[in-house]
């Protein structure tokens, strides 16, 4: 059970949040210009790495805000929390 420091509300129990998978996969601005492979890349392909992973979390049972989390998947340590639209930190 993580403690997650919501950038809007502060530190809260993991049970208040839901995970939204890998971060920084922007929806293509012009989907119709993409071929099947390029669209599939956006739609289906996700990383599953051991180490620092950038992911989206939502404070679903709180302020309902989405934000980004850099989490080490090997020990669940959260290295950094940053808002939507911000660049991923260099870790």
């Amino acid at each position: 059970m993580f403690l997650i420091n919501c950038p809007y509300c502060g530190e809260r129990d993991q049970s208040e949040f839901v995970s939204g998978g890998e971060a920084h996969i922007a929806r293509p601005k012009q989907p119709t210009e993409l071929n099947d492979d390029q669209w599939a890349e956006y739609l289906f392909m996700r990383k599953n790495i051991k180490g620092i992973q950038f992911e989206r979390w939502n404070h679903a049972h709180g302020c309902r805000k989405w934000f980004n989390v850099a989490r080490d998947t090997s020990n669940d340590k959260i290295e950094k929390i940053y808002k939507m639209g911000e660049q991923p930190p260099k870790i």
């Binding site: 839901v18 929806r27 939502n58 679903a60 309902r64 805000k65 989405w66 939507m84 639209g85």
Partner: peptide, 13 residues
């Protein structure tokens, strides 16, 4: 509700 909120906050702010 959460899907729409997701799009609003992350794709179409």
């Amino acid at each position: 509700m959460s899907k729409l909120e997701d799009y609003l906050q992350t794709e179409w702010p």
